[in-house]
Write a protein that binds this DNA or RNA. Structure first.
Lengths: 244, 244
DNA sequence: AACGTTCCTTGATCCAGGTCAAGCCGAGTT
DNA sequence: AACTCGGCTTGACCTGGATCAAGGAACGTT
């Protein structure tokens, strides 16, 4: 399930490129939107881009947290493990998302690329000092953290109190929202496997699979292939997310 | 289960007192530890203390979020409800804890006092402008948010992947930690009811009760009364929190 | 084209924890 | 001291989702 290829952490990968942030695809959507021209140049000198292959580990729970990341493209899973292998995925992250809000001196979770991914790596020591220089950055991170806390509480409600089908419906609608495709007829991208979804929703793979079948039979979705879902009845799905 | 006495939100309660922050019992432990002398005076002019009776509502999910709070003494539960009444408690807060990190313009959860509680109320509009003036405050809040995110992820692991007894052991040890009484022989305070614990751990009250009985029969705890637990074997409990 | 592999689905069975029901205990209250 | 009432425990039974098992579909790989 988990693979342990570990990326060189401190040394920039051979394929890393220095990138002018001004040309960054996700700048406007990411935390970097808090920065102005000269600040961007300052940042550009500190960050490095690197590709991360599907299934590769970005960092592991317990590692020294010496970098934070912005996802440029691709998808990443964050997760925690129990010693016997039980896994809880605490979040899926996509292009423009920021990794590293929740950390002390060590990472509290592991991060793996789901698909081929490109990240923008930022040394953490430099981040701290940068806050004084760029208070808008710190403010932006605080807002981001606030949003993530709200999302975390929604997830607790889901894990603690929702049924299997409600969890799946909630997951699909949240993903749809994130992709700006939450209306009936829209297609939602599912880059992760059924096992990932199960470990995110606190279920088994079989229950997730049966959930998809249920939603399909009830005319709420179609599943042209296992990595996409077409919303056949967005309202019906939404009703399930807050039903009882 | 939930009561709907609502505190006057904008108007300071008749029993509110203006308090010099310099004399505040929890200052050194709370976010106010980030503030220096003159800043404290500035803050003191903005905050007001008020008592909140056991069971009373501080604010409800969906309310306009026009204040944040510091808990001076007592205990508070934060929770979300599904329309049919299922409840998930997302956190228990105690003296020196800060309420209001996770918010947009509306509260994402409800807050009720568990016991008689005293809070320090802070108008939110003034908070925003204060950040520019006191960057150390913002920095402190970001750290706090980071810690809460880590705790939230632990809770997701608990809700998604742990058994009933593991959840209860994790809960007791986390509470013990927070109270600085996590060694064998120490007594942990449980101000909340079994129903609260159940709604926090994603279980029913009966399962929580059976969990206490199990831990008692296994010699891990004693329960002199329903609102306290003596740790008889802290190591055994800790083993349960990360066992498999 | 035959063969692995990985991922997904479906069916049959099982069980941890939910539900239902009864009773206990302690703190008010009259 | 009898009564209520909320909170807690325990027992008997039930069920949603886990587990176990089998097979199918979409891939590369040789």
């Amino acid at each position: 399930m988990s693979r342990f290829q570990i990326l060189p952490d401190a040394a920039p990968s051979q394929s890393a490129e220095l990138m002018p942030c001004a040309a960054c695809d996700v700048r406007e959507l990411s935390i970097c939107s808090a920065l102005r021209g000269p600040e961007l140049d300052r940042i550009a000198a500190l960050v490095s881009r690197s590709p991360v292959g599907a299934g590769q580990t970005l960092f592991q729970e317990g590692d020294e947290a010496n970098a934070v990341y912005n996802i440029i493209e691709g998808a990443v899973r964050l997760f925690k493990l129990l010693p016997d292998g039980r896994r809880q995925i605490t979040g899926f992250l996509f292009a423009s998302d920021f990794i590293g809000l929740a950390l002390k001196d060590r990472y509290a979770y592991s991060a793996e690329a789901i698909t081929g991914t490109v990240v923008c790596r930022f040394p953490r020591v430099k981040l701290e000092s940068l806050f004084e220089e760029m208070p808008r950055l710190e403010n932006r991170l605080l807002r981001q953290a606030s949003n993530e806390l709200i999302a975390a509480q929604d997830q607790m409600l889901l894990l603690g109190r929702k049924t299997a089908v409600e969890r799946l419906a909630s997951f699909l609608m949240a993903l749809a929202q994130r992709q700006g495709r939450a209306k009936t007829g829209d297609t939602v991208d599912l880059p992760m496997t059924r096992t990932d979804i199960a470990d995110y929703l606190g279920l088994t793979i079989e229950t997730v699979s049966r959930g998809f079948t249920r939603l399909r039979k009830d005319g709420l979705i179609e599943t042209p292939d296992s990595h996409s879902a077409v919303l056949r009845d967005a309202e019906g799905l939404r009703a399930l997310t807050e039903s009882g």
